[in-house]
Design a protein around this nucleic acid. Structure first.
Length: 291
DNA sequence: AAGATTGTTGCTTA
DNA sequence: TTAAGCAACAATCT
């Protein structure tokens, strides 16, 4: 799943590869990919525009255009933004195929939208499960969206006094609180489990029962884990790939996520899997004691 | 072959 | 007014 480290990796790659280029064409191969706008209207507003700036907020990628409109991408579970040489074409049946000599790409059949750029490259939005989307928003509309998110984990606003205030009002499981984008932006299922394991907190602990000391731990560990994962270019437990179609390397450093039955690093107890808020949740029953 | 998987939204209920 | 739970979305794998 693309969570903060994966989306941040994509954002940094895009910054290097596409800033200053111009969009010269667009096609949507799965109509629902464009949310809130139809392709003809979208094309009118986007074609000819220079890509001015790339930012990330929570799990959103935002590309600012010269005309002050913003391309907003959400990868959901299986989305990719692939930057490739322009070696693709549409065949007579309307199918999206590789031209001869194109890079090998296992996601060819899942491409939902394509932007052609004026540097002979394309941005291909691939998404196996079709949950991801592209929106075109004014800065005002974008602000309405991003202002709903809680603080970024690396911002100064993400601090103990803030989390104390938020958690004190919540009786939900701490894991659900970490996943709530209105409380903290960018954490998903993988990193929530990793943070709670390293903080030695049972994922079902009520958020309002988390101590001040534990809140300090959560803040430090969140930054440590997300930072390390960004350095490793993210986690590819299943579908995540960067703009070159390459996997991240943080999988090897995971302590609990996806590791049911393997032994805890700290105490050699078997890692267990339970459901918390309808999400698969991995933890060590000895290090993360229920209360 | 049903159930699990995932992030987010929108609805319902308390 | 707020909190919390759940269905829905989509497709694939077990």
């Amino acid at each position: 799943m693309p969570e903060l480290p994966e989306v941040e990796t994509i954002k940094r790659d895009l910054e290097k590869k596409i800033i200053g280029t111009r969009i010269i064409n667009f096609i949507d191969l799965w109509p629902k990919t464009l949310k809130g706008i139809k392709a003809p209207d979208f094309k009118k507003k986007v074609i000819g525009q220079k890509l001015v700036k790339v930012t990330r907020r929570a799990k959103l990628i935002i590309i600012k255009l010269e005309n002050n409109l913003n391309l907003v991408f959400h990868m959901k579970m299986t989305g990719h933004l692939l930057i490739e040489p322009d070696t693709r074409k549409i065949d007579s049946d309307g199918n999206w195929v590789r031209k001869e000599g194109a890079l090998k790409d296992p996601y060819n059949q899942y491409i939902r939208a394509v932007f052609w750029l004026d540097n002979n490259k394309i941005i291909a939005f691939s998404d196996l499960r079709k949950f991801g989307y592209i929106k075109l928003l004014t800065s005002i509309q974008l602000n309405l969206v991003t202002s709903e998110f809680g603080p970024e984990p690396f911002s100064v606003d993400f601090k103990a006094s803030y989390l104390q205030k938020k958690f004190s009002k919540k009786r939900i499981a701490i894991k659900k609180a970490l996943l709530d984008q209105k409380i903290i932006a960018g954490i998903g299922n993988i990193y929530a489990d990793e943070i709670l394991y390293r903080a030695a907190i049972h994922p079902e602990t009520q958020a309002n029962k988390i101590s001040v000391k534990e809140i300090d731990k959560i803040i430090i560990l969140t930054r440590k884990i997300l930072g390390d994962s960004i350095e490793a270019r993210g986690t590819s437990t299943s579908d995540y790939r960067d703009t070159d179609g390459q996997q991240g390397k943080y999988m090897n450093k995971l302590k609990v996520y996806g590791k049911k039955g393997s032994l805890c690093d700290k105490c050699q107890t078997e890692i267990e899997k339970i459901k918390v808020g309808a999400r698969g949740t991995y933890f060590c029953p000895k290090c993360q004691v229920k209360r």
